[in-house]
Amino acid sequence: MSSAVYLSNVTAGYAHNVVFTRLSLEIGAGRFAGIVGPTGCGKTTLLKTILGTHPVFSGSVLLNGQPVDSVPPGAIGYVPQLGSVDWSFPVTVEEVIMMGLYTNRRIWPWASKEERERIHDLAHRLGIYDCLQHHIVHTSGGQRQRAFLARALINNPKLLVLDEPTSGVDIKTQHEVLHLLGDINNDGITILLTTHDLNAVASHLPWVICFNHGIVAQGKPRDIFTNEILTRTYGGDLVIVRHEGHYLIANNTPLHLTSGLS
């Protein structure tokens, strides 16, 4: 399996704060992987490093065998965290998807016939054709996620990166989105996402990377979701319940202790 993402001895961080040092990571082409870890563990910095929007102090980042700064625009699809989106911004779903077509280098503001057909085909495929003319704030959580997915997929990228796609949506939408990502992965697109939701990861993702300022462990959920690895990742006591191949992960600390009540 060739590498879609290859990090070699990468050290990255901010002026007075090194987030991770000498990190090496390889994600094979066609893989569907999720990065999990506690808040502030460096997941977002890692994602930005992979996307090439965060400079590294040392080491190299290759995407599909090319240095990240020479990857052609559109080869990476990116879906930001929905919590960071300004929902009052005046854009329709169609205008959001059209933003992804910037990589065409077309200078006219309006979409060409071919571009419009691509938008409509993708919208049909993702089930958002009927809301193309809706303002983004007038769409459901699932439709919003699909609109941003469409923008990321409009250039047929080889690698799709998503920042917390399961946050801010209800549990049904979470499962719909992860199912949809599974279908996209079946088309041969490598998918890498970050999430806080261990249960969603356990149910849907074939590959998990436990991260806390470095890689704690990586592998299939059944190998990764052990008390020892999760304790090393999160530093707390987590309970793992296994039932007919499914996992449920919960905090083992009684609620009255975590909330400060006695």
Binding site: L51, Y78, V96, G100, R151
Partner: peptide, 23 residues
């Protein structure tokens, strides 16, 4: 502004993603 419509709109709406898309 006419010829910069696409990059201006994208970077105004979502600066981080615009960078990933090569703007």
């Amino acid at each position: 502004m006419f010829f910069m419509y696409r990059p201006l709109l994208f970077s105004t709406f979502d600066n981080e993603a615009a960078r990933v898309f090569g703007i």
